[in-house]
Design a protein around this nucleic acid. Structure first.
Lengths: 170, 170
DNA sequence: CTGAAATTTCAGTAATTAGTGAAAATTGAT
DNA sequence: ATCAATTTTCACTAATTACTGAAATTTCAG
């Protein structure tokens, strides 16, 4: 593996482990993203000095996150994988998957807790805080849904605009 | 601890552990956020059935994230802690701290890698992908900076607007 | 200053999570 | 249908991360 690619892969391994993702899976994905050609499991195992079975589990995880696309190559029985070429798409997928796994269940729990009759002052206060959070999160997710309907160009335009929206809003 | 509060605290413990944060720290913060009155370490240890020393470490971590505020109560030598009452502020702090710890170092690594002369086709491709990511991340962080200059009201207005921006943009 | 109350540190242990190799299951060309 | 290539599973081990209790340190009222 070239030093340039190795540095990047290393860094993403570290980063991954600060999130829920483990080091190896982070490295695997970094490697796949930087590869022009589809990558197979043996190549990953060799490049990252990791067991074949570990790679198999990692690929399963990446697939469950929809971060990777299975590709077959004519005359080769191995499974090959690629990442989407559009980084926006990767970011969008990441957002959506995290939302499905983390935000939605949290909103459900909160909604249920807000249905309960508060038993005392402490619970009344707790509910008011939960409600604040609920509203904030709901707003943000609703907004993120809407935003995804924008074309990449519009998105880029919006991001560049930044605080400029405030002017538009008034 | 009342069942309502306990459910919330439990859930946030689980959630925390999917992020970099460990279960106990997640629970501690949930408990503090839901408490109207400032909370001290002994109360946390008792409420969460966790050792006093573990609480001490957890509080240190929450302080390093700027998520809690130390508060002294007259005639009491203990340290008391609160969370900001504004959930927006909590969200903002979280964003900024994650950025400082994860995004900024990543951008630095990427910037360095983009300076290197590519040695071959593979490196040239890798650099082009790194550049794409770099631009995307830079755009998003720049936008998030700008957005923080908006007042809570403007922010809420923008979030409600959602995809409506596209109309404004054209 | 003194010393009791409070907090922090840290070495040791417990719990959790990650990784491996061997074996089982699946796949697909012949 | 067969069988070699490939992928997956899983029990076990390794590595990492979290937690505890005892001891050290800090804090502050008197």
């Amino acid at each position: 593996m070239s030093p340039l690619i190795e540095s990047f892969v290393r860094h993403f391994g570290e980063m991954g482990s600060r999130w829920g993702i483990n080091r190896t899976v982070g490295q695997m994905y970094a490697y796949i993203v930087l590869s022009e050609e589809p990558v197979n499991a043996d190549e990953l195992a060799a490049a990252l000095s990791v067991s074949r079975s570990n790679v198999s589990m990692g690929l399963k995880e990446l697939q469950s996150w929809n971060l990777v696309r299975l590709k077959h190559i004519a005359g080769d029985r191995k499974d090959y994988f690629t990442a989407p070429e559009d980084v926006w798409e990767i970011a969008r997928t990441l957002l959506n998957e995290r939302r499905k796994r983390e935000i939605d269940p949290t909103l459900t729990v909160m909604r249920e807790l807000l249905m309960d009759k508060p038993a005392d002052r402490g619970e009344r206060y707790a509910q008011s805080r939960i409600e604040d959070m609920y509203k904030l999160i709901e707003m943000m997710t609703h907004w993120s849904d809407e935003i995804q309907r924008l074309s990449p160009k519009q998105l880029a335009r919006m991001l560049k605009l930044g605080a400029g929206v405030s002017k538009l809003l008034s």
